[in-house]
């Protein structure tokens, strides 16, 4: 196939140029492999791996904060005399540290999707074996996995710590499991919402701001109104107001089904009936995010 025959033996660097073209006869692993590659590239990128040193700083810092706080809490729990359990519930951890999680998704969702949009690399993907659904699914799964690592790692620290402190194994394992389910749900929800905001605002600065705004403004508004409702004695409204911000949605679901203590005013989250509504809303938001992303990329094509 090559017309120029190799002079590969020449040690002179300029001679390398003369090696003829070699065709590729090896395996082509196709669509599923490409999807996996995109997934791992995005997941690694979320923590700055395979990117510049500068882009590692923020995600690694946030990851450090998440696990360090957990380690401190373990130390506190262990030092307390006669302690029989951790000073914090597994399910409360993500709620307390929601600001850190919010910062993480705000910084990483734009890097996952906006870069390809802003630099118009998307056509390069779609001119390859993967389809639009593969692209969206890989990005969504990778971002959710990154969030799950961020939120799951501190729970693991807590769990290992509690076992070292010889707290009740069965209780701890059960609560740890509940915590993991809760943060898994949170990861998927936040990933979906974060990616939608980022994909709709291709300019990076705006993407970051949009995600932060979505998370903090809704939470601020919901918790304020909940507090007012609680003060004015309309407890019934409190549990329904929680439907309007991502973090209170997760709070509601885990209070109803995962034995969590609600952070709602008065500590009264939704019961099983209202909990079903919470769960449906969460799942609908995730599905909706996927649909919006699919729609967003339909127009990008080539």
């Amino acid at each position: 196939m090559s017309t120029e025959t190799g002079t590969a033996t020449g040690r002179d660097a300029s001679r390398i140029h003369n090696i003829g073209y070699r065709s590729y006869d090896g395996p082509r692993l196709g669509r599923a492999y490409a999807r996996r590659s995109l997934f791992s590239q995005t997941l690694r990128g979320s923590f700055g791996l395979g990117r510049s040193a500068k882009s590692k700083v923020l995600p690694m810092l946030l990851f450090g904060v998440m696990t360090l706080v957990a380690a401190i809490l373990v130390a506190v729990s262990m030092s307390a005399p006669d302690a029989s359990k951790l000073v914090i519930e597994y399910t409360s951890y993500a709620i307390y540290l929601q600001a850190v999680i919010g910062l993480f998704i705000a910084a990483q969702a734009p890097q996952a999707v906006s870069r390809d949009l802003r630099f118009k690399s998307v056509p390069l993907y779609f001119s390859r074996p993967i389809e639009r659904a593969d692209y969206v699914a890989a990005k969504l799964a990778a971002t959710a996995s990154a969030l799950f690592i961020l939120t799951g790692a501190p729970l693991l620290v807590l769990y290992v710590g509690s076992l070292l402190a010889k707290f009740d194994f069965a209780d701890q394992t059960k609560w740890f499991g509940q915590g993991l389910v809760s943060v898994a749900l949170l990861s998927v929800l936040f990933a979906g919402l974060g990616l939608v905001m980022a994909a709709l605002t291709p300019r990076r600065g705006f993407g970051v701001a949009a995600v932060i705004a979505l998370l903090t403004i809704t939470y601020g508004a919901v918790s304020t109104i909940q507090a007012i409702a609680w003060e004015t004695g309309s407890e019934g409204a409190v549990q329904w107001l929680g439907l309007f911000s991502p973090i209170t949605l997760i709070d509601g679901v885990q209070t109803a089904f995962l034995g969590a203590t609600s952070a709602f005013p008065g500590g009264e989250g939704p019961g099983a009936g209202a909990g079903v509504v919470y769960l449906i809303v969460v799942l609908a938001l995730v599905a909706g995010s996927y649909a919006v992303l699919m729609r967003r990329y339909r127009r990008v094509g080539l």
Binding site: P27, A34, S37, F119, K120, L124
Partner: peptide, 26 residues
């Protein structure tokens, strides 16, 4: 493509390797 399509913050090697994998190369 006709238009610009390259992210500025990665090297040509990294970018092309990624694109090769997206085409199914191990």
């Amino acid at each position: 493509p006709e238009h610009d399509c390259l992210p500025p913050d990665v090297s040509a090697t990294e970018f092309v390797v990624h694109m090769a994998r997206m085409s199914g190369l191990p």
